[in-house]
Write a protein that binds this DNA or RNA. Sequence first.
RNA 1: GCCCUCGUAGCUCAGUAGGAUAGAGCGACCGCCUCCUAAGCGGUAGGCCACAGGUUCGAUUCCUGUCGAGGGCGCCA
Length: 536
Amino acid sequence: MITEIIKDSLKENLKELGINALTDQISLERPANREHGDWSSNIALVTAKNAGRQARELAEEIVNSLIADLPDGVTEVTVAGPGFINFRISAELSYEILLAVLEKESSYGSSDIGSGKQVNVEFVSANPTGPLHAGHARGACYGDAIGNLLEYVGYSVHREFYMNDRGLQMAAFGRSLEARKNNESPPEDGYGGEYVSEWAKEMPENLSLEEIIAWGCEFAKNDQQETLSQLGIYFDTWFSEKSMIDNGEIGRVLANLAEKGMAYEKDGATWLSSVEFGDDKDRVLIKSDGEYTYLTPDVAYHRNKFERSDWLINVWGADHHGYIARMKAAMQALGYDSDALTVQVTQLVKLLRAGEEVKLSKRQGDIIELRSIIEEIGADATRFMYLLQSVDSKQTFDLELAASQAMDNPVYYVQMAHARLCSIERNAAENGFDFKILPIDELGVLVHQREMEIIRGLEILPETIDLAARELAPHKIVTWVREFANSVHGFHHDCYVIGDGISEKLTNARLNLVVASRQGLKVGLDLLGVSAPNKM
RNA sequence: GCCCUCGUAGCUCAGUAGGAUAGAGCGACCGCCUCCUAAGCGGUAGGCCACAGGUUCGAUUCCUGUCGAGGGCGCCA
């Protein structure tokens, strides 16, 4: 890697000059302004004070030393601004990037950072009491995308859905189904949604309440599974909360906590000493009426996951953030490393339709089903829109915009770029140009600013993937894909691949660029789970 | 009252392990099709990066506080 060569060279020169610098502090960054060079080091600025020198003067000294023996691949070193050292890289290295993409194709930018590690990503985990609604969509798209990212950097990823298939809400759901079956209104604390009536019609006659609950749970699961499959989301495990009651797992966890002295009795209830591990207050595990709280099975569940994984990721909605401290505390109480549990919180999404807010209210039953969003804007747009922004930010988007086949819709903009690249390839084939990977010296005709922009985009894809995976931030891939699409459209506009004024040599070289671009863009879209159409 | 996330262009949002002149899309205005998809490309206008302090050679980025938005603070799930 060129960055390593430069760093080593910097270290060597600093040493020779007798400058006492913390050489592990040497970092290279890409200057925001391209005219400053390809890479930039702030080492002179960082060390100037310690060395008792002026940064600019120090930088000049270092540069003079570097120039005496330029590192391989570096064509120019200059001092700029307050004391930055800027490096310019030979064009040859740019063409190597193209060859790297063409060689690796759909694995370009992948790595083995997570090799040998099992990560469990739990997301959606909606109650099996109804269809998935708009509120579940962000977590669904996000969880799946980080799964893709982590797989791409080498982790063994397990996607998991936790079903709260027991407890008060299931009883309420069962009674609601029963009431609707008998053409009655659902109970006060029940589920009023219209879907309950429709589902009840499908339900067999004369079931006991217990059977109704089991039937409803299964029906809801199938319904949710079907909706998720429309988005291309599939889980390795649908984990049943109820199963942990049936097999005694919850009982064992409670016994385990008691053994470790982490649980105690008070006021007729059993409490978890979560304060010991940083929670605000101790939490109830078993209520005075003998029922478990929501926390108890969930603790057992997380222990179960820890037994099978090195790293747990939970994707939770903003309304569950207060729950993080107690879950981490519970895991510590059981002897696990709470840092191995990462909870990613997604902020709320406000939906608009033609500028008007679309209200969500589960209590009223007038939910917006996720299914209907997918029908309205399509699976690709659904995924893309929900992944557009950091999950740390509240999000607002307009369904009408997302569905529009217009230039203000970023999904179409990006997909169109891919389709155009495919179109060029088809056109080349029709005109008798067979694509073949060219040797580096034949790529030297690629000098147009648009071409260099594309190569630059491909160059930063691996580090973008790396960063996105490390930060569990798929929106960074979205940003890359949008910027890269912009470069592609510019190239398409300014650089004809096939035509009267284009030499055969240039056509072949540009074809290399086109194929590499198509492959790179496809890598990005695949990570997002958005399709890359060949034509539109 | 305490905790979490956020506050960047008219709108929707990127950017920040501290770096040089803060970006994109949309909207507004002005250009560009005899040629691979005009579902496109280019240009102009538009910013006290919420506010006030602090740390630093350097702060939109880190720290503290204030204001504002949303979400949590149950023997609900």
